[in-house]
Deep mutational scan, measured.
Amino acid sequence: HNLTITQGKLFFHYNPKLCLSEIHKMEEVSGTKGRQERNDIALKTNGDQASCENELLKFSYIRTSFDKILLRWEPYWPPDFRDLLGFMLFYKEAPYQNVTEFDGQDACGSNSWTVVDIDPPLRSNDPKSQNHPGWLMRGLKPWTQYAIFVKTLVTFSDERRTYGAKSDIIYVQTDATNPSVPLDPISVSNSSSQIILKWKPPSDPNGNITHYLVFWERQAEDSELFELDYCLKGLKLPSRTWSPPFESEDSQKHNQSEYEDSAGECCSCPKTDSQILKELEESSFRKTFEDYLHNVVFVPRKTSSGTGAEDPRPSRKRRSLGDVGNVTVAVPTVAAFPNTSSTSVPTSPEEHRPFEKVVNKESLVISGLRHFTGYRIELQACNQDTPEERCSVAAYVSARTMPEAKADDIVGPVTHEIFENNVVHLMWQEPKEPNGLIVLYEVSYRRYGDEELHLCVSRKHFALERGCRLRGLSPGNYSVRIRATSLAGNGSWTEPTYFYVTDYLDVPSNIA
């Protein structure tokens, strides 16, 4: 807008934040220059609390790290170098490059900038070799853009010569660093050979998330399962459950009422301010606690030095998902009996873990797994792929695949051998790939016309006998059925096997 004052003059007093240069501009645009008398524009009460600059400061050096910015700028000295009290560095987070010096300023003089007072450097006698002032900004957020400017702080001049310097606002972004852990990993099994893994992005990506790394490792069953005799009275049979499938998407929606109208769909109840505040506090606490764990609990591995020492970490090797089922080394339970199943799973520490690289999504279907087997899954978020990966501390989750139908069934015939004193040795093959492992066998036998009897055969007993022995049988026709019990439950009964026990007292003698 054009402003013209045809008559009258300007009068400025007691404006401590208004620089004289701005008042002189007002004289020019209003056409009143030359009308004012000496005392109409006070030299001592206008701009006496402001830094009124008329020179431009330029930054000469900028260096960044993930949490620091090192700045240096060209030296500046007023005509009387004693008038320079120091520099004021202003900075704040700036997602967009549209910041002005006066953003967030209120009537009390406060604003949204963080201000650092910096002492002037030592003055050199040689004007050509003056030290460049600077400042190291610490405690910054990774991968965050900051708006920065600097200006001088000078003393009051009796001659009211307006001098000083100020830089333009520059924008500097800190470097990326390792992201925080992925949030809320959930693993479920939808079949006997697959596990579905879902997660949420890290709360602090500290860069642009480029991919996720998912490692999985087959877990050995508890050692007590191999040692305890679950045929003993009072000892509860062990059981394991597989990871249940995901709930429906509708039930997972946030901010939804727990109660549904019987007449149909209901609208979600909005969260109160107290609920939102509580969630923010919980989120802040979780982030602080995660940072504490990362800094205190997890110790970084030592990389190899120039002395030739090897990095103890196993090298990563990509495998196809079809090879995942046989990740671990199978060892027989008892070496003397080769027909026992290889369900003991000690994992070799030198073995390469299978892994998958996930790009542009937060889910993965891990296939080719062994049925009813526990897996430990390790999830890392990465925001750099080359020249070397920059990934987060791992988040861990466990899951067990679903049982395989008929995996616990005894394959092959049940054979028998009759000894003296009416002892019958029953023999059968253990299931080759049971659900988890076989903890015991149930032997059901009966003599024709009598009630059915049951015998429990422990895992250890089966390994020693290759089956079991029935003792003290009365003469007669017998039928026997056997079924295995694994961590997933009972298998199917075998087809009945028949044998006849004679009275050993009636056996004919070869003595003449």
Results as ranks from 00 to 15, higher is better:
Pro205Ala: 08
Asn208Cys: 12
Ile209Ala: 08
His211Tyr: 15
Tyr212Ser: 08
Tyr212Thr: 14
Trp216Gly: 14
Trp216Met: 09
Glu217Gly: 13
Arg218Ser: 12
Arg218Val: 04
Ala220Leu: 12
Asp222Pro: 07
Asp222His: 02
Leu225Gly: 08
Leu225Gln: 12
Phe226Met: 11
Asp229Lys: 12
Cys231Ser: 01
Gly234Ile: 15
Gly234Ser: 09
Gly234Tyr: 06
Leu235Asp: 10
Leu235Thr: 05
Lys236Tyr: 13
Leu237Met: 10
Pro238Ser: 05
Ser239Arg: 07
Arg240Gly: 10
Trp242Met: 05
Pro244His: 15
Pro244Trp: 07
Pro244Val: 08
Pro244Phe: 12
Pro245Arg: 07
Glu247Cys: 06
Ser248Ala: 12
Glu249Pro: 07
Glu249Cys: 03
Asp250His: 09
Ser251Phe: 08
His254Ile: 14
His254Val: 08
Asn255Thr: 07
Asn255Ser: 07
Gln256Glu: 08
Ser257Val: 10
Ser262Leu: 11
Glu265Pro: 07
Cys266Trp: 09
Asp273Lys: 09
Asp273Cys: 03
Ser274Arg: 11
Ser274Trp: 12
Gln275Trp: 09
Ile276Thr: 06
Leu277His: 10
Lys278Thr: 14
Glu279Gln: 15
Glu282Ile: 11
Glu282Ser: 10
Ser283Asp: 11
Ser283Met: 05
Thr288Asn: 07
Asp291Asn: 15
Asp291Ala: 06
Tyr292Asp: 07
His294Met: 13
Val297His: 05
Lys302Ile: 09
Lys302Asp: 15
Lys302Ala: 11
Thr303Met: 10
Ser305Val: 11
Gly306Glu: 14
Ala309Met: 15
Asp311Tyr: 14
Pro314Gln: 02
Ser315Arg: 09
Ser315Asn: 14
Lys317Met: 07
Arg319Trp: 14
Ser320Arg: 11
Leu321Glu: 11
Asp323Ala: 08
Val324Thr: 07
Gly325Trp: 15
Gly325Ala: 12
Val327Asn: 07
Val327Met: 08
Val327Tyr: 11
Val329Gly: 08
Ala330Asp: 02
Thr333Asn: 11
Val334Gln: 12
Ala335Arg: 13
Ala336Gly: 06
Ala336Leu: 12
Phe337Asp: 13
Pro338Ile: 11
Thr340Leu: 09
Ser341Val: 11
Ser342Ile: 05
Ser342Thr: 06
Thr343Met: 09
Ser344Thr: 12
Ser344Cys: 09
Ser344Met: 10
Thr347Gln: 15
Ser348Glu: 13
Glu351Asp: 10
Arg353Phe: 02
Pro354Asn: 07
Pro354Ser: 07
Pro354Phe: 06
Phe355Gly: 09
Phe355Cys: 07
Glu356Thr: 06
Lys357His: 04
Val358Met: 09
Val359Gln: 14
Asn360Gly: 07
Lys361Met: 13
Ile366Trp: 02
Gly368Pro: 08
Leu369Thr: 08
Leu369Lys: 00
His371Asn: 04
Phe372Asn: 07
Phe372Trp: 10
Tyr375Ile: 04
Arg376Leu: 15
Ile377Gln: 02
Ile377Glu: 00
Gln380Asn: 14
Ala381Pro: 00
Glu388Gly: 15
Glu388Cys: 11
Ser392Asn: 00
Ser392Asp: 00
Val393Thr: 03
Ala395Asp: 05
Ala395His: 12
Tyr396Ser: 11
Val397Pro: 14
Ala399Asp: 15
Thr401Gln: 00
Thr401Lys: 00
Met402Trp: 15
Pro403Asp: 10
Glu404Trp: 11
Ala405Lys: 13
Lys406Arg: 08
Ala407Gln: 11
Asp408Trp: 00
Asp409Trp: 11
Gly412Asp: 10
Val414Ala: 11
His416Arg: 10
Glu417His: 02
Phe419Ser: 05
Glu420Trp: 02
Asn421Gly: 06
Asn422Pro: 02
Val424Ala: 03
Met427Cys: 02
Met427Thr: 15
Pro431Val: 11
Lys432Glu: 14
Lys432Ala: 13
Lys432Val: 05
Lys432Trp: 04
Glu433Phe: 13
Pro434Asp: 00
Asn435Thr: 00
Gly436Asp: 14
Leu437Asp: 13
Leu437His: 04
Leu440Glu: 11
Tyr441His: 03
Glu442Trp: 14
Glu442His: 02
Val443Cys: 02
Ser444Gln: 06
Tyr445Ile: 01
Arg447Cys: 05
Gly449Glu: 15
Glu452Leu: 09
Leu453Arg: 02
Leu453Asp: 06
His454Pro: 09
Cys456Ala: 01
Cys456Lys: 02
Ser458Thr: 13
Lys460Met: 09
His461Leu: 10
Phe462Tyr: 09
Arg466Cys: 13
Cys468Asn: 01
Ser474Gly: 11
Pro475Trp: 12
Pro475Ile: 10
Asn477Cys: 03
Ser479Lys: 05
Val480Pro: 01
Val480Lys: 01
Ile482Trp: 00
Arg483Lys: 09
Leu487Met: 13
Leu487Ser: 14
Ala488Asp: 05
Ala488Met: 05
Ala488Phe: 11
Asn490Leu: 14
Trp493Glu: 01
Trp493Leu: 04
Trp493Ala: 00
Thr497Gly: 08
Tyr498Glu: 13
Tyr500Arg: 06
Val501His: 05
Thr502Pro: 07
Asp503Arg: 09
Asp503Trp: 13
Tyr504Val: 13
Tyr504Asn: 13
Asp506Ala: 08
Val507Ile: 11
Ser509Phe: 10
Asn510Pro: 08
Ala512Val: 14
